[in-house]
Design a protein around this nucleic acid. Sequence first.
RNA 1: GCGGACGUGGUGGAAUUGGUAGACACGCCAGACUUAGGAUCUGGUGCCGCAAGGUGUGGAGGUUCAAGUCCUCUCGUCCGCACCA
Length: 814
Amino acid sequence: MKYNPSEIEKKWQRFWDEKRSFEPDEDKSRPKKYILSMFPYPSGRIHMGHVRNYAIGDAIARYWRKKGYNVLHPIGWDAFGMPAENAAIKNRIHPKKWTYENIEYMRKELASLGLSFSKEREFATCDPLYTKYEQAFFIDMWNRGLVYRKKGFLNWCPHDQTVLANEQVIDGCCWRCDTPIVQKEMYQYYIKITDYADELLNDLKKLENGWPNRVLTMQRNWIGKSVGLEFAFRLDEEGREKTGIEEFKVFTTRPDTICGVSYAAVAPEHPLVKAMLEKGLLDNSSQKRIEAMHRMPVRERNMAEKEGVPLGVYVLHPITGEKIPVWVANFVLMEYGSGAVMAVPAHDSRDYDFAKKYGLPIKPVIFPKEGGLPDDGAYTEEGIVKGCDGFDGLFSKEAIEAIIKWFEKNGLGKKVINFRLKDWGVSRQRYWGAPIPMVHCPKCGVVPEKRENLPVTLPEDVQITGEGNPLDHHPTWKYTKCPECGTDATRETDTLDTFVQSSWYFLRFTTPRRLWEKRAFTKEDTDYWMPVDQYIGGIEHAILHLLYARFFTKVFRDMGYVNLDEPFKRLLTQGMVLKDGAKMSKSKGNVVDPDALIKRYGADTARLFILFAAPPMQELEWNDNAVEGANRFLRKLFDRACKIEPCTTLPQILHSNLDKDEKEARKKVYEALKKSEDVYVERFTFNTLIAASMEALNALDRQQNVQVWQEGMWILLNLLEPIVPHICWDLSEKLFGRNNFGLIELREEVFEVETISMAVSVNGKPRAQIEVAPDAKKEDILELARSAVPKWIEGKTVLKEILVPGRLVNIVVK
RNA sequence: GCGGACGUGGUGGAAUUGGUAGACACGCCAGACUUAGGAUCUGGUGCCGCAAGGUGUGGAGGUUCAAGUCCUCUCGUCCGCACCA
């Protein structure tokens, strides 16, 4: 019989569907596994990255199911977002239609891979039923003070009258109409993720054994906790009178360098600058230069050269009382700390560059324990304080403590913890998103919509042109009554960031469909299913998605909705799929289409290749020839299986009766079985398991024992099922009535051998092989070893002999 | 600049605790069979060398009886963050 993948695959996919084989059991007494591959954006067609993602997740899910676990392995669609609007502009198709059609198509594509999804829990995040709960959560957070409105700067295209995401700004211009973008200040909704900054940082410790180190590092850097001193620079008398401003705050992580301050620097957006501009205290050229700095988007400022303008006002040094000039500097960020810094050119490279450029004094106050200060550049390491009254002789760490204490004692400053992490702006001036469920009332202000009115749904009769906000432009949609007082009011026309949807979708999956109308999820279900035991996805989500999802979990916990600190116990970040050394992309023309591949070779070949070609976390280089090789293995497996006599139980073999090749075959088979535990549970290096299975099949091929063949195939089909399910179900059905899909015990006797082959090396170089009995005495082995390498030891003195049992003998001679 | 990961045959990759480097596969070479095919099977294949042997995990040192694996320095590639005070 010939291996016919398309026939087999259709047959079993239908079988699984009809039997609802992969729906989780509602019996919560069974041990569970929640295996989740990140849900896809319905862009239109699946790509190889998806195939890889879902092949990995499916293998893990199928493994645990076969082990008797209750497995939740769901799929859904991250369905809101800009591509739908872009398609609407380009092809005049409604985003909703476009999205649901794509989902329809991609669902079929994924189905053709034979993935064991819990399909009955599938949903799209643009389903109103999902939006309903998301809006309710948003209101809960608003009521708890976790959501607030604030003016923030956004990329704004004056031509299209729209807000642009950072990635839509190309060289400072709108990606669509090429108009230079401006920074526009608008009201935005923010979620207070910073309230949880410390916990999000500390709890990374709990993930150390389950998450890749680099993801943990990336999150730590992103949160960016720094501890330091906050104090105020008081303006001198003249300055206070001129500007009407008394003082401004600065933050430093290096209070030990405070006596080296030679100027203060403030951001172009700083209130002091604003006040001075308003009062006309700056000359024309200074004004112009400050305005130019201000105009430059913050992202671009870091590329530009350091620039500054002296403000002509002075502050007083809190310790020495010296007068210190204040500068505006383009490298000071308004968003971080207080938007102002104390500048210590001797010990900070940015301050140094700036001081050099403008000829400001450089005063070293920290000296290394050994050696001197650098000739050029700042000394940014720790050292001993010199030239700072009252603190001289202290080492940096002690000086930091002492100086902070001094400030606190004198009421001049305090220890402060700063985070790089900022609150999460969730407003999007777009159509295709979840409407923010708020109402603007002239009497009551901004108030949440009533719960019974949720979801606030999108109007369908809109024209998406890319200009302006369709919700705002809609003739009637935004007009409503205030939920508090009934006055005429307007709806919020902003929609939510799509990251909000992906921050809790994994909780929604725990809810059986019959409860969807009633509840977002229940504690009963989340207590049982959560946390996700294995999460699989691309490294590109290492920071934002994973951070937001962790944050939502903690907020839900504090609102009493879940009993859970961290949502994802283990995380596997898969590598990219490359072709010709580059990421597959249409523009490069190096795309391999999964559909075509499945059509030609079948889903099992696609899955086998993708898991065989590289370990999951590594990049995978596409190779058409190697795909052919994967297919060859399956054909061979099928061919050999067809020659086997069916049986319904695992044959009992008397190992000692077998010949050498038969024993070797059994050994290889059981080695693969042994390996499978480690691979499916711990390491996920499917490539090595597949290699071990190939070795086993090759070894089986070198002998003819009927029972050894039966046993070998029984085991191989069992352990390959998670990787190539269709062929394994088909052959298992024919040969073993699928009785081989249960637990298989290891047979230790197959690992026992009559002789062990050991290497003999002389001075570390391998010179000969010897065969010894497993129970041979040390002296006998050494004797044999010496006699095996006469050429290398004759006439020399044996200094030492090292025996590594079962592996080698090393003879050291001189 | 800071942080991280990775460098092993012609290629993808194995080597879990320091113990015979190159498993498995692709490619290539030779052969068999053949309805002459991009099928299947057998054998070979790190490099140099006729061989004995030498040499070999980016490079240079070091620790060790023994290093792909541990340490120091260095080069390269990729990724993340990027004036974060």
